[in-house]
């Protein structure tokens, strides 16, 4: 129960932060952070596949509704969720983790958490930016925007991990 409430709060906070603040950020003309994916990154290891997909879709859809972008966030977030179980399996076998454990910098260690986030955030951002532009003629520019945004999103994710989860 306690962890459910925490998930709901995290969902609401991340969506509001995204649509009210981060959607308006354009650092250096290129970089838009999409921090809301952090919600999917931090779902517990033990979550079942269908719940992971449904939550990802719902998260993306909510951001879409607020940004009037049709379904591009939903499509990108669900695509990202598809890769999460296999990526988690690379690091851990099923017996390894404690019940209710979630991916975090503290739990996985800096190197693994960074790799895990890098792969998922990259999948999400590349899909999202391609869908948003929806044409190939501006591919180079879109790719550059995506790369820079991936870096910025990752930076914010790592900072947020240090702020909220790594306590000595």
């Amino acid at each position: 129960m306690n962890s459910t409430i925490r998930l709901v709060i995290r969902f609401v906070v991340l969506v509001l932060l995204q649509v009210l603040v981060l959607n308006h950020v354009r650092l250096g003309g290129y970089m838009n952070p999409y921090l809301y994916v952090l919600f999917v990154l931090l779902l517990p290891f033990s979550i079942s596949g269908w719940a992971l997909l449904m939550l990802s879709f719902f998260l993306g859809f909510t951001v879409d509704v607020f940004s009037n972008t049709g379904g591009i966030h939903a499509a990108a977030t669900v695509l990202m969720a598809l890769f999460r179980p296999n990526l988690v399996k690379l690091y851990y076998s099923k017996e390894d983790f404690e019940p209710n454990a979630s991916p975090s910098l503290k739990y996985m260690g800096f190197q693994y958490f960074l790799g895990y986030s890098l792969v998922l955030v990259s999948i999400h951002h590349l899909a999202l930016f391609s869908l948003e532009v929806f044409r190939f003629s501006e591919f180079g520019f879109t790719f550059l925007r995506a790369l820079l945004s991936i870096a910025l999103t990752l930076l914010i994710i790592i900072i947020s991990q240090y702020l909220f989860y790594v306590k000595k």
Binding site: L53, G71, A74, A75
Partner: peptide, 21 residues
């Protein structure tokens, strides 16, 4: 394979939303 079927279903919905928008 319900994981992959659900994935395909959700992507179809998302793309329908994109195309309709």
């Amino acid at each position: 394979n319900h994981f992959y079927f659900l994935f395909a279903l959700l992507e179809v919905i998302a793309f329908a939303l994109i195309i309709n928008s």
